[in-house]
Design a binder for these strands. Structure first.
Lengths: 228, 228
DNA sequence: TGCTACCTACCAAACGTTTGTTATGTACGC
DNA sequence: GCGTACATAACAAACGTTTGGTAGGTAGCA
């Protein structure tokens, strides 16, 4: 009962076990409930185990987020695997982000929760920013390919389209997490398709929505002086 | 120095003062740094003052978020005030959400940060969900009006368009907070206009992006069983 | 006017608990 | 017997909350 010592020797595997326990605690109670004792209890161990594998709490959290990110990237992506290229592939990438499954919902909940601590920790913030930059690059390539295939009209820079698409899914994730019953998987997919239809459509008369720009300027952004 | 008793009689004003101190602490260090002592120090008072006006920490946080929400709603909305109706109004509403000013960036940072604790606190989560629902309703009305004015093509339900637009801005907010230098105010506005152009454009051949649906089904959402 | 009574508004200090971290002990495989 | 892999226990610090007290205002009554 005492010394079962499972999976001896594989240091990294044990660290992964710890990370999983961290995820479970985070998924349940968020970062406010993330304590060393809670993690230890979650995996039926002592805090001594945690400190044996991680120098401190911050390192533990950073590793858990890193592994979660890597796991998400390497996980079988049901939609992307069967999609071809171009627009269909962009669609698949977007769908694979959304909380369409319970597992993905839990992961996304952790991810959204991490934004609070990340925004106050420059190192974590930089890592997050880099992750999103990477994802944007991938999307931009699919957009470029879609344009080459004639699925998307030229005129918009792939980077801009990718940034917009990423914003869209990210915001949708948040909405879903707060109102799961209002956003079943079916509706999430429909919303993505609606969005993609807007991309595929030819651009409207340029400047149509900005007709009243003359007097109002760029939306009256005259107060204060920019972000940061 | 001891008994200056400022602003006597206005109990509610004092609670607002406390809330402002809460905002300042949250904007700086997020919810992880939100302690009664930090708030008290921020306003040069004792923790006893806080407990005098609020029964406990949770009540203090909830009130601060509530007031922040109300303040944001009642704040002069530079864009919305000058916008007419329909699509221009929808555009204004979206722009007023974005962190185009330093003040709005600070508010948005608090808001994003609150998602972690809200997702683990059913009462807070319900309040958040209700807020977003309200905002969606407003957007949907502008969408309906735009459709009446012929600025938007029929075919999409205003509710769906509103949900999509809200997701878009919300996600953009997050992106901006993590990479402010990549998303200056100018670019945020351009992205919104790009998005609105996609709405205004006539829908593409229906089902174009879902061409390969046959074998792949609805994006291969076959693993696991739905959210929640 | 002056005394008593009671109120709100706060401070300073302390309470018991929980936190991250550190130190010490111990069982096991080599 | 020696290092790795933990458990156990202790640590100071920080936490939310409670308590006791003071200062000043207000109201009532003489």
């Amino acid at each position: 009962m005492s010394g079962m010592t499972p999976a001896r020797g594989d240091h990294e595997a044990r660290r992964a076990d710890v990370s999983e326990a961290v995820w479970r605690v985070l998924a349940e109670g968020g970062f406010g409930a993330l304590t060393l004792r809670a993690v230890a209890a979650e995996m039926g161990a002592s805090t001594g185990l945690l400190t044996h594998y991680f120098p401190n709490k911050r390192a533990l959290v950073r590793h858990a987020l890193e592994v979660l990110d890597r796991r998400s990237a390497e996980r079988p992506r049901p939609a992307a695997e069967r999609a071809g290229a171009g627009l269909a592939m962009l669609r698949a990438v977007l769908l694979d982000i959304l909380p369409l499954s319970a597992q993905s919902a839990a992961d996304n909940r952790i991810w959204v929760g991490s934004w609070d601590v990340a925004l106050s920790d420059p190192e974590l913030a930089a890592e997050h920013a880099e992750r999103y930059r990477r994802a944007r690059r991938v999307m931009a390539e699919h957009v470029a390919e879609a344009r080459r295939l004639g699925e998307l009209p030229p005129g918009r820079a792939p980077q801009e389209v990718a940034a917009a698409a990423q914003s869209f899914v990210l915001g949708l994730v948040v909405q879903v997490l707060f109102a799961p019953q209002e956003y079943p998987a079916q509706r999430q997919i429909e919303l993505v398709d609606l969005y993609l239809d807007g991309l595929a459509a030819a651009p409207a008369r340029p400047g149509a929505t900005r007709a009243a720009d003359g007097p109002a300027g760029p939306a009256g952004v005259r107060d204060s002086g920019g972000v940061r």
